[in-house]
Design a protein around this nucleic acid. Structure first.
Length: 554
RNA sequence: UGGGGUGUCGCCAAGUGGCAAGGCACCGGGUUUUGAUCCCGGCAUUCGCAGGUUCGAAUCCUGCCACCCCAGCCA
């Protein structure tokens, strides 16, 4: 149990409930419907629910709210579990399923009928809509509302045994057709669905609705604080009504918080599916997707995602969090933990004319400049190297701190060199730079006192390894692809992925484990692809570039 | 226009009657073998608006405005 001040309204409520003795322990749950992949918004909900349990020494269940067989599948059940675990959370006990409570839920439906609180209604969907009224007009009572208890019991039983077709009948709670809250206008509790269920097969042909299932599931599991998003607020009176009218064993309470929205992102399942179906991305785990599996493949760490969720807080207001905050959380984590390496994306040959042709010097470089405990790596240095095309100019003004013809630059972790001449092809493009090393500059400044202005990275042409580098950027170039005038698919950033085939990496990087994070110095953070990387054919994904404050106007 | 919510710096967010935390972003400056990190400094006389109560209000009262959610046998 925690004594530090509450970080948000939920923590305040729980601390109070614990102090007053309303609850002895905290039990929350993350209740996804297995009908899609988890995304950044779910990560927030997971963080809230598991985080609360963690902070107060309680428990958090993972419960699949599988009450609609037509939209769900086992595939999602598995991916959701994998994502939750990857995020670093462990649910209490076994995974739970709403479907394993179907019999209890049915018995409670019978109970409601017996109490005169529910009835079987024959109105079809169209008619039900008409009887429901509108936001400003009250609804009218269904003509079946006053059926006798015995008849209702008989009808409900026959619904269950499959006597009626889909849509022919529903079970409704008898509450108030004139309520200003649409959810209280005799809400539907059960509907007929003759579809096989991924967990219960063909055992059932009637399925409880979310409203009839959720609160009762919470009660069965002893959930103390049932946390959901704001759009369910209007359902709370119904949630409470059902709990009060049923002989459930515990009294869960529902609390709502504002859903997470991120700029430059879409998270609706429909839109994400469209991106996949239209081939805009390669799949649900494409590194540009805001799905948990996509972020994972992109190189985001679970710790950074969790930190981000804490950073943005949990409130009842709905806003749009700047995706720059997420990016900050990622950089912050990776800067601290990622091993450094060098990678040349656009190679330009550099020949050190004073360096022996067959000499290979094994230089040593720190794995991390600020964390000596992470050790060192060996960097082969040779006469021919690759540097980045962007790091050389025949001439430039003083703001350019890289290699310029006739000037000096420091080769990262190696010598200071001075460029002497260039070799050009027929079109006049520089294809090679010839330079010489400045004596005795390994680990120290030149004796003549002329310090180089900048430092550039490099890879040995003889010992380096070629790699495929996937440069990812934001999928959309519009801040709010959801609410723009243009169709969101027209707002896709055409440069969200650039594949570089001929990049050169220092040899140590080829041995990277899949999913290992690195900082390629002066370029950004990269991860060895979870599926495609191998030491024979290295593949790295750019997670996020380094912060760049250089006013690139020269 | 019925009901339920939310409105504090460009974004997120503390604050719950005593004189506007913090983070992101941004702008300066310093350190630096990553134009990164790090470090220093700047960044709301003002809390959706208008009245009122009070010695004193972002915090209390009244009225108004804006935005979000609800008319699935989806969750």
């Amino acid at each position: 149990m925690e004594n530090s001040p509450a970080n948000n309204f939920l923590e305040a409520i729980i601390a109070e409930d614990l102090a007053s003795g309303r609850v002895q322990e905290v039990v929350t749950r993350f209740p996804p419907e297995p009908n899609g992949y988890l995304h950044i918004g779910h990560a927030k909900s997971i963080s809230v629910n598991f985080g609360l349990a963690e902070r107060f020494g309680g428990r958090c269940n993972l419960r699949f709210d599988d009450t609609n067989p037509e939209k769900e599948s086992q595939e999602y059940i598995e991916s959701i579990q994998e994502d939750v675990r990857w995020l670093g959370y462990q649910w209490d006990g076994e995974v739970r399923y709403a479907s394993s409570y179907f019999q209890q839920l049915y018995d409670w439906a019978v109970y409601l009928v017996e109490q005169g609180d529910a009835y079987v209604c024959d109105l079809d969907a169209q008619q039900a809509r008409e009887y429901r009224g509108t936001l400003t007009e009250p609804g009218r009572n269904s003509p079946y509302r006053d059926r006798g208890i015995a008849e209702n019991l008989d009808l409900l039983h026959r619904m269950k045994t499959g006597e009626f077709g889909e849509g022919a009948k529903v079970l409704r709670a008898k509450i108030d057709m004139a309520s200003p809250n649409m959810n209280m206008r005799d809400p539907i509790l059960y509907r007929i669905r003759k579809a096989a269920h991924h967990q219960t097969g063909t055992e059932w042909v009637i399925y409880p609705t979310y409203d009839f299932a959720h609160g009762q599931e919470d009660a069965i599991e002893g959930i103390t604080h049932s946390i959901c998003t704001l759009e369910f607020e209007d359902h709370r009176p119904l949630y409470d009504w059902l709990i009060e009218h049923l002989p459930v064993g515990s009294r869960p309470r529902q609390y709502e918080f504002g859903r997470l929205n991120t700029s430059y992102t879409v998270t609706s399942k429909r839109k994400l599916k469209q991106l996949v179906d239209e081939g805009v991305v390669t799949g649900w785990d494409d590194p540009r997707m805001p799905t948990v599996s996509g972020m994972r493949r992109r190189g985001f760490t679970a710790q950074a995602i969790r930190r981000f969720c804490n950073m943005i807080g949990t409130t009842r207001s709905d806003g749009v969090v700047d995706v720059a905050m997420l990016e900050h959380a990622i950089r912050d984590d990776l800067n601290e933990n990622a091993i450094r390496g060098m990678c040349v994306l656009k190679p330009l040959k550099l020949v050190l004319t004073d360096y022996p042709e067959d000499q290979v010097e094994a230089l040593s470089a720190p794995a991390h400049p600020g964390r000596a405990e992470l050790g060192t790596r060996t960097l082969p240095f040779t006469r021919e190297l690759y540097i980045d095309v962007e790091d050389f100019r025949e001439e430039a003004n003083k703001k350019y701190k890289r290699l310029v013809l006739g000037k000096r630059v420091r080769l990262r972790n190696a010598y200071v060199i001075e460029a002497d001449e260039v070799v050009k092809d027929d079109s006049g493009a520089v294809i090679e730079v010839r330079a010489h090393t400045v004596a005795d500059t390994l680990g120290r400044d030149p004796d003549d006192g002329i310090k180089p202005k900048g430092v550039i990275h490099w890879v040995s042409a003889q010992k380096g390894v070629q790699a495929t580098i996937r440069l990812y950027d934001r999928l959309f170039h519009h801040e709010a692809p959801d609410k723009a005038d243009e169709h969101f698919l027209d707002l896709v950033n055409p440069e969200s992925l650039q594949v570089v085939e001929g990049a050169w990496i220092e040899p140590a990087l080829a041995a990277a484990d899949r999913e290992q994070n690195f900082q390629f110095e002066r370029e950004g953070y990269f991860v060895a692809d979870r599926f495609d990387h191998s030491s024979d054919a290295p593949v790295f994904n750019r997670t996020i570039g380094l912060r760049d404050t250089w006013n690139n106007a020269f």
